[in-house]
């Protein structure tokens, strides 16, 4: 996300912290489609995604005053709230994993596609300047690691769900996730 947009969202959040309802409406307008997309992708249910989006924005409003721009970018902060709430919901025993009806390549390896003129997921990533490094590092991972990380991140699959879906032993999948994350960290200059 470009710095200008970041600043704008941080200002809106600060205004929300001062109980500015108009700023909150603008913040919602600017961010809700992205966050709803994230929630639907993880939950696979519009009704539940709506419920969670509601809760999250109420929570964003209530906690806006505590948001610290120094610690994380505004969209990162809000996305984390939504993702955490979705993960809580996925923990409910009656939620089933759903991965049907999608093109397997796109669904499970959104970063495998090479950059092209078509605005695929990788191209979309690369269009955002601060995401280029991440796209490059993901592209450098072994495909299985990349697939495991993508399924966990986008679809909210747990280790055991990953193992079932990728038809691999649990230990193997755990190793892929762990090594994949370690390599990403090293590639992104984590130390």
């Amino acid at each position: 996300m470009d710095p200008h947009k970041n600043k704008e969202l941080a200002d809106l959040l600060a205004a929300c912290g001062r109980r500015d309802r108009a700023a909150f409406a603008r913040l919602y307008q600017a961010t809700s489609a992205q966050l709803f997309g994230v929630a639907i992708r993880m939950l696979r249910r519009e009704d539940l995604a709506e419920e969670i989006l509601q809760e999250c924005y109420v929570s964003i409003w209530n906690n806006a005053a505590g948001y610290t721009a120094a610690l994380s970018a505004p969209m990162t902060w809000m996305t984390s709230i939504v993702r955490n709430r979705c993960l809580d919901s996925l923990r409910r025993p009656n939620m089933e994993v759903v991965l049907s009806g999608r093109d397997a390549d796109e669904a499970e390896d959104p970063l495998a596609a090479m950059p092209s003129d078509a605005p695929g997921p990788l191209a979309q990533l690369q269009s955002a300047s601060d995401a280029r490094a991440l796209a490059r590092c993901l592209a450098a991972l072994e495909p299985k690691m990349r697939q495991a990380i993508a399924l966990a991140f986008f679809d909210g699959l747990s280790h055991s769900e990953l193992a079932a879906h990728m038809r691999q032993p649990l230990g193997t999948v755990k190793t892929w996730v762990r090594r994949g994350l370690e390599r990403l960290r090293a590639c992104l200059g984590g130390d």
Binding site: Q34, T76, T79, P110, Q124, D130, A131
Partner: peptide, 9 residues
């Protein structure tokens, strides 16, 4: 680190 991934959704 991982946040930019959400832009692909």
């Amino acid at each position: 680190r991982l946040g930019p991934l959400t832009e692909a959704v």
